[in-house]
Design a protein around this nucleic acid. Sequence first.
DNA 1: AATGAATCTTGACAGTGTCAATTTAACCCT
DNA 2: AGGGTTAAATTGACACTGTCAAGATTCATT
Lengths: 202, 202
Amino acid sequence: MASSSQYHHGDLHSTLIDAASSRLEKFGIDGLSLRKLAEDVGVSRTAPYHHFKDKNALLSAIAAKGFEQWHQIAVDIFDNDSIPPEQRLKDFIHAYIGFATEHPQIYELMFGQTLWGEGKASAALRDVAYPSFQYQVKMTKLLQEKKLLPTNQQALRLAQVTWGTLHGIARLIIDGIYADASHIEEMCDCAAALFMQQKNLN
Amino acid sequence: MASSSQYHHGDLHSTLIDAASSRLEKFGIDGLSLRKLAEDVGVSRTAPYHHFKDKNALLSAIAAKGFEQWHQIAVDIFDNDSIPPEQRLKDFIHAYIGFATEHPQIYELMFGQTLWGEGKASAALRDVAYPSFQYQVKMTKLLQEKKLLPTNQQALRLAQVTWGTLHGIARLIIDGIYADASHIEEMCDCAAALFMQQKNLN
DNA sequence: AATGAATCTTGACAGTGTCAATTTAACCCT
DNA sequence: AGGGTTAAATTGACACTGTCAAGATTCATT
């Protein structure tokens, strides 16, 4: 585990993940070359292959870290009983878009075509991505019971659509399509208002 | 313009676009190699460079075709006076998701990171992508006047959020994240219901 | 100390996009 | 009709990429 040795790195596995993460944030997914990465870490071109089956496996590991990180943020917001549910949902929305726009490259990796396209998502990736969604379904049910979200829809369906909304807004902003960063707050508020319209009914 | 000659192709420009489109639909963006494409068309590796500045320029041309196609679909739906506005919006939603899921690769190209990432979208692409959105803003205003969409939001903001919703749903379905093709209809209906909640108010 | 497994190395291969210099054909003008 | 300009297509080359196969080095365990 020491760093004295030259030939054996010691902890290449996690060193690769760290170096790759920082390269990813700087240069994007396409700018992340395994060879340059190996050079960064001071190891030969093929050394990473002893720790990751291929490039996608390394990327998946980074994405996994992202999912865990996001899941923690989501839980922290929804489990905070000192804040009214309505505000929690608003906070959640802002946090989601904030997370996506502050780490656009990682977000792209987590939800982009590189890992998910063509149904090529590994079971491991699915397993780490799913809890966040399941949790959102649960929260959706809860907010429906409190009549903050429409009650005439299945929770699963509604959760898919609300996640879709956040996902779509995040991507439009990240890629600068029909929207830019200066609209973030207003778009979040607009989405929140759309979700919770029936609040004004009672 | 004839096809007798061997050396000069005659109409390589549009031949490339066609061949690239079909290769794109089969193999995806990453599977589209300029060299293989040239071979398909029966021309040397670098011939395409006399018609397109680089790979992205060719991809942009394909995307442009997609935007024009989609814009026409959208206009046809919204301008159909024989159908009540509420139904038109529903049709529009289904058409959007249908377009995206029936041509996933082209949709990915039109709205994906390849062309838009890092703010690298060309002015030409923006020009061809924007009218569709402007049109949707106009339709949003109209539906707000008819009290089918929430009136307490700016049309621009609401259009961004609704487009975001459709965009997000499309991507979740295409990439198989938290949703799959068998949910399409229900998700569209759920989104429509979410947009038009205030209909039940009057 | 020796053996087997884990780890890392160099070498090699098949791809990729794209530039430079060159050849071929088409077009236009006198 | 012929000569010159220009457009179109070609081969060659370069710098990359991910990844496999074989061999070298070190670690861990008996």
